[in-house]
Design a binder for these strands. Structure first.
Length: 127
DNA sequence: CGCTTGACCGGAA
DNA sequence: ATTCCGGCCAAGC
């Protein structure tokens, strides 16, 4: 079975949203990072998932509810992907104190690597 | 059914 | 530094 079932995709979407909800304010994650963090759909090959996981995450985000902080998900290059809501995404990030310059943000500074890094203050490291 | 598109990614030019 | 291209697969039409 190489084809994903509806329930698998639905569960995957839920997992993605759940994970994104755990991202703290002022921090961001990448699509690939999310793909690696959540449990893959059971009926997909690990090799395929490694290549397509990020895309599946993107598809999941396209239909996410408002309760999910979708603006904290960016692409691997630390840029806001060229989707229709990029403008709003930029606004929300700025409101959270994330430095966004020309649609580009510093992943080294704001990327979230898990709960272990929560002790690090997002903006206190500079100066 | 087949073709096109996409909230991606990594590498190449 | 930026832009382009191929890959891969799910969804929509």
């Amino acid at each position: 079975m190489t084809r994903l079932t509806d329930s698998d995709l639905k569960l995957f979407h839920d997992s993605v949203w759940e994970f994104v909800c755990t991202v703290p304010v002022g921090r961001v994650v990448t699509y690939g990072q999310v793909a690696q963090a959540v449990v893959p759909p059971s009926s997909i090959g690990s090799t395929h998932y490694q290549r397509e996981g990020a895309r599946l995450v993107g598809a999941a985000m396209a239909a996410c509810p408002d309760s999910v902080p979708w603006h904290r998900v960016v692409n691997a290059r630390g840029r806001l992907s060229g989707h229709a809501t990029a403008e709003r995404q930029c606004q929300r990030l700025l409101l959270e104190g994330v430095e966004v310059v020309a649609g580009q943000l510093d992943l080294l500074r704001v990327q979230w690597h898990g709960k272990a890094c929560e002790t690090v203050h997002p903006q206190a490291s500079l100066f």
